[in-house]
């Protein structure tokens, strides 16, 4: 979340965290360029007018130079058609004008993140009968809701969006936890463990494999276990 209005950036960060996303907030263009080099963010919300530079330049730099390509949402008070077109042409995926309603921001964030998933139907992700509603925050297996904590839900959402890929603990930490998380705790291992237990208990299937020395994989075709 890049915005020089500290009060706004913090509020949006808080709102998105409540929705189960891991959010880092910065206020300047230089900070934004620095952290996006090191952290493979899924989505960057970018203000266009920053005290030390402009958001469009950041967007172009990320698109041209960065190895990891995040989704970019431009969040700005500029609303003329020319600005929107220029922003999208610079490589932004979406454009939202301030002031906005939080539900609209959430919906756009969901849409942008869903584009990575090949298992999305509307706001739902579905794999082998396991359904995750990104808008209603529900996980359902055969009409029965599975009760998950916010963190477990975020983890499952990330897994289902990137099913069949192997993710290391570090990657999970980067995508599901924010920069404030302590990289040396075993919080990732613990959360993966509880999620795996809850899914198996509810469905009777093994969804998350441990790949020795590499990390975890969420499989599209779970085996009974």
């Amino acid at each position: 979340m890049v915005d020089d209005e500290a009060d706004l950036a913090e509020a949006i960060g808080k709102a998105l965290r409540r929705e189960g996303y891991a959010v880092d907030v910065v206020h300047t263009a230089s900070e934004a360029l620095e952290i996006t080099v090191y952290t493979p963010y899924d989505l960057i919300s970018l203000d266009l007018t920053l005290p030390d530079g402009d958001g469009r330049t950041i967007c172009r730099t990320i698109r041209a130079e960065h190895e990891h390509q995040p989704r970019i949402l431009m969040l700005t008070a500029r609303d003329d058609i020319e600005e929107r077109v220029a922003g999208l042409d610079d490589g932004a995926d979406d454009y939202l004008v301030k002031p906005f309603a939080l539900p609209e921001l959430f919906a756009r964030v969901r849409t942008l993140l869903r584009r990575d998933a090949d298992v999305a139907i509307g706001a739902e992700l579905e794999i082998a009968g396991l359904r995750l509603d990104t808008a209603a925050h529900r996980v359902v297996w055969k009409e029965a809701e599975i009760d998950l904590t916010a963190k477990e839900f975020s983890l499952l959402r990330f897994f289902m969006t990137n099913a069949d890929d192997v993710h290391s603990q570090e990657q999970l930490l980067e995508h599901v936890w924010d920069a404030a998380a302590d990289p040396f705790t075993n919080t990732v291992r613990v959360t993966v463990g509880t999620l795996r237990r809850k899914l198996t208990a509810a469905t009777g299937l093994q969804w998350i494999e441990t790949v020795i020395g590499a990390g975890y994989r969420f499989v599209k075709e779970p085996v009974p276990g």
């Binding site: 706004l8 509020a11 709102a15 008070a77 609303d79 004008v97 301030k98 906005f100 939080l102």
Partner: peptide, 21 residues
């Protein structure tokens, strides 16, 4: 002018919305 007014408007609106939720 509208740009300048929208920023504080967004600050107020988002914070109030968050608090009301």
């Amino acid at each position: 002018a509208s740009h300048e007014l929208r920023n504080p408007l967004a600050v107020a609106r988002t914070n109030l919305e968050l608090a009301l939720q």
